[in-house]
Simulated assay, not measured.
Amino acid sequence: MPISEIHKRGLRDLLVSEQNTPVLIQLAKGTTKNVCNPKDPEEALRLLSTYIPDIYILLSKRAITKELLFTYLHSRQPEANTDFTKADLITKVIQYWEEDQESKRWLCRGQSAVVSTYKLNEEDYPIHAIAKKFGEWFFERFNSNSLSLVDLWTDAALHLTIMANDGINESECTTAAEVLSTLTSTKEQFGFHFNPNLTHAGIQGRMDSYGQVVVLCCGTLHTCDSCVGVFECAFGLLRDPYAHNNWKPKKVKCMLKSELKPPELHSLCLSETLQAALELPVPTDELG
Results as ranks from 00 to 15, higher is better:
110 G>S: 04
141 R>A: 08
261 K>W: 05
29 K>Y: 07
183 L>N: 10
51 Y>K: 15
166 D>Q: 14
165 N>C: 09
159 H>K: 15
47 L>T: 01
205 G>F: 07
260 L>I: 11
134 F>V: 01
221 L>N: 06
228 V>M: 07
251 K>F: 03
232 E>N: 09
167 G>E: 04
131 A>S: 13
86 K>L: 07
251 K>V: 03
135 G>E: 00
170 E>W: 00
128 H>W: 08
61 K>R: 15
159 H>T: 12
282 V>W: 01
86 K>M: 08
131 A>M: 03
28 A>P: 01
215 V>W: 02
184 T>G: 04
269 C>H: 13
58 L>K: 13
126 P>V: 15
92 K>R: 14
195 N>P: 00
104 K>Q: 05
19 Q>L: 05
10 G>Y: 00
31 T>R: 08
46 R>A: 12
220 T>D: 02
9 R>L: 08
188 E>C: 05
208 D>A: 06
185 S>F: 08
114 V>F: 03
135 G>F: 00
81 N>H: 12
78 P>H: 13
278 L>T: 09
91 T>S: 10
129 A>I: 08
130 I>N: 07
236 G>I: 00
133 K>G: 10
150 V>Y: 11
32 T>R: 10
178 E>S: 10
98 E>A: 06
6 I>G: 02
175 T>W: 01
223 T>F: 12
54 D>P: 04
185 S>M: 10
250 K>T: 05
144 S>K: 15
217 C>R: 02
234 A>W: 01
43 E>C: 05
274 L>R: 01
236 G>Q: 00
257 K>R: 15
135 G>H: 00
124 D>N: 14
196 P>G: 14
143 N>P: 09
88 D>N: 15
29 K>I: 11
224 C>D: 10
89 L>I: 03
270 L>F: 04
248 K>G: 04
226 S>V: 13
206 R>L: 05
87 A>H: 09
29 K>D: 02
18 E>P: 00
269 C>Y: 06
51 Y>A: 12
270 L>N: 07
20 N>L: 00
66 K>C: 06
69 L>G: 09
132 K>Q: 12
166 D>I: 11
231 F>K: 12
232 E>H: 09
10 G>P: 00
247 W>N: 09
90 I>G: 04
93 V>A: 03
137 W>L: 05
166 D>K: 14
31 T>L: 06
2 P>A: 10
235 F>A: 02
35 V>S: 02
145 N>K: 15
270 L>H: 08
2 P>H: 13
49 S>D: 03
101 Q>L: 03
264 E>Y: 09
193 H>G: 07
272 E>H: 14
215 V>P: 02
45 L>Q: 01
9 R>V: 04
169 N>G: 04
185 S>H: 13
239 R>K: 15
14 L>P: 01
171 S>M: 12
68 L>K: 06
112 S>E: 14
6 I>N: 07
150 V>L: 06
193 H>D: 06
16 V>T: 04
268 L>A: 03
162 I>V: 15
127 I>Q: 04
127 I>D: 01
16 V>N: 03
127 I>L: 13
